[in-house]
Design a binder for these strands. Structure first.
Lengths: 192, 192
DNA sequence: CAACTACCTGAACAAGTGTTCCACAAGTTT
DNA sequence: AAACTTGTGGAACACTTGTTCAGGTAGTTG
């Protein structure tokens, strides 16, 4: 009991810290990275103006913390897409969901990508889902798999700038084309 | 002579206007959309602080004008990639150039994409190269072609967040995989 | 030449920014 | 209990932002 006893103050603080990060992500989803200010985040999180400054030395630190955290969600989302049993229908469904129901989240995730392009420290986080995808899929044909991963990014981005986002029926044939040849994406290690 | 005589004042104004747009694009390439302010643009263009406001009612108008204009360059660049004679080597070379020599320009172009995601008025411009690509290529297999176009976006984006951007040798096999089946992308109807 | 017009800009303003500071509240330890 | 640590938040500061505006300047016209 005494062992895992933690300072109640720190516990509450840590909770608030996470609340601030989550509020920041909501702001990014709504208004983009440009809309992130100490005050807008504080308002969104329902904390005083100075709270974000207290928990994060600088606005940049808050942004980076938020994006690193959101990168894990990106990773999960993407892996869910990739590992949809290698079935084109499932993959197409996930992609369609990303550009429709989860549009703002997807948009936020690509803001992360872009920011990573300018800030090397964010790159490992932004790239993580790509590395993990290769790990879990163990593709028989690495080249085909890289093409597949690239196309996922492209389909999502292009889906975000379409007048009406594509649905799963439109996406399915394209996905089919991409995964033909890597019949079962997760198959490789068996015979080798 | 008298016919095409234009007010010298207006001519100078139009020139300055274009200089401001070009300066804005340079700022975007260097610091991203976030770095665009009346003052930063004015400094870059070597004009007084109020000049951008004079020529563009609002900062947003300036940003939109710049992005619409840059979208034409994006279109040209992308078409150059797509229409590299349908040869994988050429396409790979163009892609490698985009993420190396022209890295900052490519980054700026994806800022346009992302902004278009949030501002419907920018979407037609951002999408233009996709439509034009289909026009000029007249692909025999539209599905394969869409997959190819998506993969271009993905390869570029992923190239931008890599620790070391890929070179043409790494890209070539992936491109080859993508255009297999659409042997000659520009082949379909040869009836001129 | 002067009159006119259209373009241009320096100074200024209100609003919003990141951040600091300090008094104080809440929790923990001695 | 007192002494300490940690969390909290209102006021304030220096600074940057977008935008306005009145006066000035260059180009055109009579």
């Amino acid at each position: 009991m005494e062992l895992q006893k933690v300072d109640g103050r720190k516990a509450r603080g840590e909770k608030k810290r996470r609340a601030i990060v989550e509020a920041t992500l909501r702001v990014i989803e709504r208004d983009g990275v440009a809309g992130v200010t100490h005050r807008s985040v504080a308002r969104e999180a329902g904390v005083p103006t100075t709270a974000p400054t207290y928990y994060f030395a600088t606005l940049d630190d808050l942004l980076i913390a938020t994006l690193l955290w959101s990168a894990e969600e990106l990773c999960d989302d993407m892996l869910k897409i990739v590992a949809s049993g290698g079935c084109a229908r499932e993959i197409a469904r996930s992609l369609a969901k990303a550009v429709n129901e989860n549009r703002s989240r997807t948009l936020a995730e690509y803001e992360l990508y872009l920011l990573a392009g300018r800030r090397p420290e964010l790159r490992p986080a932004a790239r993580r889902w790509l590395d993990r995808a290769v790990e879990v899929a163990r593709p028989a044909d690495p080249v085909a798999f890289r093409a597949f991963l690239a196309a996922i990014d492209g389909l999502l981005m292009q889906g975000l700038i379409a007048d009406v986002a594509p649905n799963e029926d439109e996406l399915e044939p394209i996905v089919s084309f991409l995964i033909r040849g890597c019949d079962d994406l997760t198959a490789a290690p068996r015979e080798q």
